[in-house]
Design a protein around this nucleic acid. Structure first.
Lengths: 250, 250
DNA sequence: CCATGTCTTCTTGCATACATGAAACCTATG
DNA sequence: CATAGGTTTCATGTATGCAAGAAGACATGG
């Protein structure tokens, strides 16, 4: 869904499948944050040698998903709270840039995709189908970034989202109804601004949306909601689990 | 100069030297764009095996400096003109973000570094020492990005600059005097906006500066200047050399 | 019971050997 | 002379072996 722009970004070697599988293993699979991932285990699991595993792990390292402690091992890395804030700041800037660029492009295919997405999102919002809505949010943002027609931006965004482990966030996302509604409205505003071809307006509307969404995602960490009193009081510490399941984004 | 923020970004293995050396070999060294880089050659040159060389090459690939054609070889990659434009768009956005963040931080160490830089730049500009000025431009931008106090932004910026092969640009940069002067003035405006703690103003002042600088850098490609009529007429084609020596940035 | 020093084990880091595939080259033929 | 086919060469992709280092366990002495 995010591998094909028009042609393949780079003619990477055939391990693209392996790398993707390993990514899944780490983000969704049974490897949780802090866990050690022995190369040999993965190697015999995927039926290959340690060499390609090592290469993939190195790539995952500089994507920020794992941490390789030399001579010790490779561990699943959980972004610190600070890193998440930093990534959201970047996300806001990049998606703002994307919205502006898309607005400048005029009526392109991606814009129509966004409009269709809006209709589907309205329906999902009306029905309160937060699962479907989460999927549509995903598609909305990726479509927008793709529509910017800037491959370097796209790659940077991809890397960013991988680091955020956005999958983990989105999958566990069952947004609160009021935020869902607000999100839907904001999406409408964004598309409206893009359609009006006002690049600056589009950029800032998007940035406001991303900021709101990020803050909504971070809030459960900042101040545990009364409805869910449980067990979140020890942030402040770095390298502490940020309880990804609590993150929402839309 | 750009490896140390406070602590080392990631405890990478000891090949950081090797990787850096290879980067130099490619950006400065005897490997020009399009050249094949046999792993074995590098291996025996650095006195190591092919394995660490391969790892470094893979990293250089996803930094965009080389292209690995599977089963064929690793080639020095020259960014296409389009990619350079894309990278400059990103650069503008990222440095704008950095300026805004720095403005919000108030009076920090980096701000004083910028002010000192301004004084030195004024002197270099007055003396017409474009070489020294180029160095100071370099420091100016890196200091600003570092001053944003956002490590993810810093890493993204670093990756971006590596892809741009900014070294190649800056080293060969002997900016035209009028652009040098304009650049110096813009730097002043930027620092002024940052000091006034107006984040939005700082962001846009910076963005305007980066845009101006980028356009100045791209102009020699767009329209060969009458003073240097030579040999630049075949852009439009992708994968064509962009004649990095012609790029200026300030 | 606690602390300290040693040892074992596990994991990575690097080197090397071999297989595979692609590109270039050489030759033979129309 | 040009072209098609086959062969050779070269560079990568992968597997495996070996060594070095770190973390934890265990035993021993205070």
């Amino acid at each position: 869904m995010q591998e094909d722009m028009d042609t393949v970004p780079q003619s990477r070697s055939g391990d693209i499948t392996l790398l993707e599988k390993m990514r899944r293993q780490i983000t969704n699979g049974r490897y949780g944050p802090g866990d050690l991932i022995p190369e040999l285990t993965l190697a015999e699991e995927f039926g290959v040698s340690r060499t390609p595993i090592r290469e993939a792990l190195k790539q995952l390292q500089n994507e920020g998903l794992v941490e390789i402690r030399p001579r010790v091992g490779t561990f699943v890395r959980q972004p610190t709270r600070r890193e998440i804030v930093e990534l959201f700041e970047l996300k806001e800037s990049l998606e703002g840039l994307a919205a502006g660029l898309l607005a400048r492009r005029g009526r392109v295919r991606e814009l129509e995709t966004l409009e269709r997405n809006l209709m589907d999102s309205d329906r999902a919002a009306a029905e309160g189908d937060s699962q479907a809505y989460a999927e549509l949010v995903h598609e909305f943002h990726w479509t927008l970034v793709r529509g910017a027609d800037n491959r370097k931006l796209y790659e940077t965004y991809e890397r960013l989202m991988n680091q955020l482990a956005y999958h983990r966030i989105v999958v566990n996302t069952v947004a609160r109804p009021e935020r869902l509604k607000a999100s839907d409205n904001e999406h409408h505003s964004v598309v409206e601004a893009i359609k009006s071809k006002d690049a600056l307006d589009a950029e800032f509307t998007m940035r406001n949306h991303v900021r709101a969404s990020s803050q909504a995602a971070l809030r459960p960490i900042d101040e545990p909601q009364p409805a869910r009193p449980g067990s979140i009081d020890d942030d402040a510490q770095e390298n502490r689990r940020v309880e990804g399941g609590e993150l929402r984004a839309c």
